[in-house]
Nucleic acid binder design. Structure first.
Length: 877
RNA sequence: GGGCAGUUAGCUCAGCGGUAGAGCAUUGUCCUCACACGACAAGGGUCACAGGUUCAAAUCCUGUACUGCCCACCA
């Protein structure tokens, strides 16, 4: 495009559509596997959860990552920037259930030819389908969502290499996940055990410590009187009377004077008449309740630990569905001094959910006269699965665990080898690792996920022999143990005594997403590629998943490769709505990224995201989009103007043409800006770069352009004009490149007008990041020059504003006093200055004198009485 | 309860040892041959509070108070 034929107005929608397509067809974002590791920058991109739609929180953090990536690309790096979709988790499963009104029933046979159809609005019932059919429905739904996600990312201008994309439920991810499992198994780092586990009764699955959160709940203390065998009694204060039937001991602090005489004796539980030992236990807090408490199987983690340590009997009353199990006193572990009465009492509770059982128990206890007073309300913290709405219970089940507790010290050391941005985020990691109290439970009793590559031989009675698991061959991965046969068996032996059974569980989604660096690198498939891409350079992620994603990724890399997974981790903040709620969690999600892109442009949204530093939560504020849009418009207009000046002066120009002191001073300012920007980017502080570049750009438009305009028009001699034009050209090139990572569309558009050709770089994004050395040849100017000029400009502008005159109103006289040095410097720019403030050189008088404290000059401005300029011909509208 | 951040103009934030800053909002102007999707100007702050270090503190140290987040807290 020639400069005489530039677009009249800035039209972001057109520009963005045009360049998004061009970048794709030119392969601008493609990773080049031929280039060496040292020239490569590898991003371990977060795979967004596929559960419907992306929100402004995603736009925010992914834009920040893209800014860093684009700057690396301009530094000449071979960028590896893949995108993945996390589509194997519970959120996806739930979305599919709702979307098609189906439910997975693993017992059902596969129905060939069945296709999922979207459920009608308000459908209440759900159709039961086989596991395989359910997985097919998941595939259909995720494919559709992922198409939408990709379109949004392209529109936003994320410079992703789409040929590198993956999906966590895809074959390669299943393969890597299973390979990881087998590798850990070989290293002795994974085990299965039947033990009390954090269990979500709503989803009916085990969950890991990392997915648990505390929620405040209202409860009541119930004071129950226990009898002591051989006489005496004491009172226990409990919020969970429904667990009385599961009581296996009572415990007080070893130093608690009140209970010294009871230790070693036995108590009789009310209602159920179980004889339980009274034991000392350090976890009992004398200050809480009555200082003595029940150990139940299981009320909390302390119960589990005490029960395990003292090998107490198991009286499990909570079932996998959360209801109280039908147990019989007088049998097995449920001993009772009065089984008949116990069973009579318990039959009121069997089948109830904990909350109902709590109320019922309180009634029974009151009726039995065991309560010593009315219930006392309290607020307690209760553990919930973060995605669940039922309180977690401890239920003994068989689960797979990864041995992380033994590795705490190593994992702390690994975390410290990574550079965290901002650095204080390391603390969160450390605090999490230090507080770990359970191995990582990786099995989930769900359907849509990566299965374990494991089968169990069945003994003569058809019982699985869990201690002799049959593992898949590494070469056969991925396998589905419910569909595939273990090595050496026939399908006909499935489920029959002497045959085998597949492990029915699937892995925690983090077991897969903790391997994203290995997934991208094709670990186990392509060793050469893996060596080039692992470990990665940068991991961008949000802070609330430090304990999950960052932690598990560091863990897996340590276990598999004794390496950190990446060198830097960039932690983004959240987007908060004006009521200070996290946007992605708030109900009012009416603002969709698509709509905002339509209204404001991708560059405007990216501007908003890039104004926020890493780790810092940011207000959702449409005013900032407007500011971003305004900046892009200004770049469009100032560039158009500048290029018109360039085309008016024929021939090539270089910085050696920059001879005027004011131009040299400007170049020096740009040089400092470039230097600072490089440093800030190196420390991941892109926001500081944007702020500095933006501020310099406005001063370029408002002051420097005004100063050199006349000279660029040809008001002075040819050498002076060349100096102005050469400076403008170089400055514009520098600005476009400095802005390019932030505002990829407008900068690319403007670049294409001229510099794509003159610089032999078809894309600004493939142009080199500005180097301060470029300007090294330009001799240093008087450092105060620009400031002095601005003081004069501002004084005349202020006077004109005060007198309500136009900016071009002529100045009658301009008296300047200041230090001799300042005046000498000012003289070198006087011609430009006079032109910029409409004063004739004769109107200026200078004399040495004192300047005010806050300025370099003292100025007196008088305006002409009349504007006697010739009227400029009005351009047709 | 432990940890980490933050508290600067009406709002959103930058500055992090040397004369209080920006954008938005408010007010008043100006069609100026790139841009009215623009430009100029004005008003607006004892930089949460209290001590300390220093010639000098919004900036460093200590403490306090709020706010937010992360973690812990189930008798």
């Amino acid at each position: 495009m020639s400069e005489t034929n530039l677009p009249a107005a800035y039209s972001p929608a057109e520009i963005e559509a045009k360049w998004a397509e061009r970048w794709e067809s030119d392969g601008l974002h493609k990773y080049d596997p031929a280039r060496p590791r040292s020239e490569t920058f590898v991003v371990d991109t977060p795979p967004p959860t596929v559960s419907g739609s992306l929100h402004m929180g995603h736009v925010f953090s992914y834009s920040q990552t893209d800014v860093l990536v684009r700057q690396q690309r301009m530094l000449g790096k071979n960028i590896f920037y893949p995108m993945g979709w996390d589509d194997n988790g519970l959120p996806t499963e739930r979305r599919v259930q709702k979307q098609f009104a189906i439910r997975c029933e693993p017992g059902l046979p596969y129905r060939a030819g069945w296709t999922p159809t979207p459920a009608a609005e308000g459908t209440k019932t759900s159709e039961e389908v086989s596991r395989k059919n359910f997985l097919e429905a998941c595939a259909v739904q995720t494919a559709e969502d992922e198409k939408k996600y990709e379109a949004l990312w392209r529109r936003l201008g994320l410079s992703i290499d789409w040929t590198q994309h993956y999906s966590t439920v895809g074959e390669r991810c299943r393969r890597v996940s299973q390979l990881s499992f087998l590798d850990l198994r070989e290293k002795g780092l994974v085990y299965s055990v039947e033990a009390p586990t954090l269990w979500d009764t709503g989803f009916r699955t085990a969950v890991a410590q990392a997915e648990v959160e505390d929620r405040e709940q209202n409860g009541n203390y119930h004071d129950l009187r226990f009898q002591v065998e051989g006489g005496g009694d004491f009172v226990i204060s409990t919020t969970r009377p429904e667990l009385l039937a599961a009581c296996v001991a009572v415990v007080a602090h070893p130093d608690d004077a009140r209970y010294q005489t009871l230790f070693g004796k036995r108590a009789i539980t009310p209602l159920f008449g179980a004889s339980v030992p009274i034991m000392p236990g350090a976890h009992a807090d004398p200050e809480k309740g009555t200082g003595i408490l029940m150990v139940c199987t299981f009320g909390d983690i302390a119960d589990v630990e005490f029960w395990r340590e003292h090998k107490l009997p198991l009286r499990q009353v909570i079932g996998r569905d959360g209801r109280l199990l039908p147990v019989e006193f007088g049998k097995g572990a449920f001993e009772s001094t009065n089984a008949a009465a116990a069973n009579e009492a318990y039959k009121n509770l069997a089948g109830l959910y904990p909350k109902q059982a709590r109320t019922k128990s309180a009634e029974l206890l009151a009726a039995a006269g065991v309560l010593t007073g009315p219930p006392k309300p309290t607020v307690q913290a209760v553990k919930f699965y973060e995605k669940g709405d039922q309180a977690l219970e401890f239920v003994p089940t068989r689960q797979w665990f990864i041995r992380i507790l033994d590795a705490k010290a190593d994992l702390l050391a690994q975390g410290r080898k990574v550079r965290w941005h901002p650095d204080y985020m390391l603390k969160r990691y450390e605090q999490w690792v230090e507080g770990l109290n359970q191995d990582w439970c990786v099995s989930r009793q769900r359907f849509f996920g990566v299965p374990f590559p494991v089968w169990y031989p069945l003994d003569a009675k058809g019982e699985p022999q869990y201690d002799k698991p049959l593992l898949a061959d590494r070469k056969s991965l991925p396998v589905d143990p419910l569909a595939d046969c273990p090595p050496g068996y026939q399908e006909s032996q499935r489920g029959v005594p002497g045959g085998f059974a597949g492990d029915p569980d699937v892995m925690d989604t983090w077991a897969t997403s903790s391997l994203t660096p290995q997934i991208s690198s094709h670990w186990g498939l392509d060793p050469e590629r893996h060596a080039k891409l692992f470990p990665a350079d940068m991991r961008p992620q949000a802070h609330e998943i430090i304990r999950t994603w960052a932690f598990y990724t560091i863990t897996k890399s340590w276990f598999h490769e004794k390496s950190v997974p990446w060198r830097d981790v960039a932690i983004s903040g959240w987007v908060v709505s004006p009521d200070r709620q996290k946007m992605s969690k708030s109900k009012g999600k009416a603002v969709t990224p698509e709509g905002l892109l339509e209204t404001y442009s991708a560059d405007a949204l990216r501007y908003w995201a890039a104004r926020a530093k890493l780790g810092q939560d940011t207000m959702y504020d449409e005013m900032v989009f407007k500011v971003g849009h305004r900046l892009a418009t200004k770049i469009f207009n100032a560039s158009k103007f500048t290029m018109l000046q360039l085309s008016a002066v024929p021939g090539e120009r270089s910085l050696s043409d920059v001879t005027e002191p004011v131009d040299r001073a400007w170049i020096a300012k740009m040089r400092a800006l470039i230097e600072e920007s490089g440093k800030d980017f190196a420390s991941y502080d892109y926001a500081a770069v944007l702020i500095a570049v933006e501020s310099a750009f406005w001063s370029f438009c408002d002051d420097y352009l005004e100063l050199v305009k006349n000279r660029a028009y040809g008001a002075g001699d040819e050498k002076a004009r060349r100096s102005a034009v050469a400076s403008l050209e170089w400055t514009l090139k520098a600005f476009l490149r400095l802005f390019a990572p932030f505002l990829p569309y407008i900068t690319e558009e403007v670049w294409s007008w001229r510099f794509a050709e003159t610089e032999k770089r078809p894309s600004v994004h493939a142009a080199p990041w500005p180097a301060a050395a470029e300007a090294a040849a330009v001799p240093a100017a008087q450092p105060e020059l620009l400031r002095l000029a601005k003081e004069v400009l501002d004084a005349t502008r202020a006077e004109k504003a005060a007198q309500k005159k136009s900016v071009k109103w002529p100045v009658k006289s301009l008296e300047i006093s200041g230090a001799a040095g300042s005046l000498a410097t000012l003289k070198t720019v006087l011609a430009d200055l006079c032109a910029a403030c409409s004063a004739s050189p004769e109107a200026v008088t200078m004399k040495e004198g004192a300047a005010p404290e806050t300025a370099l000059l003292s100025l007196a401005v008088a305006l002409a009485e009349e504007d006697n300029r010739p009227k400029a011909p009005k351009a047709a509208a």
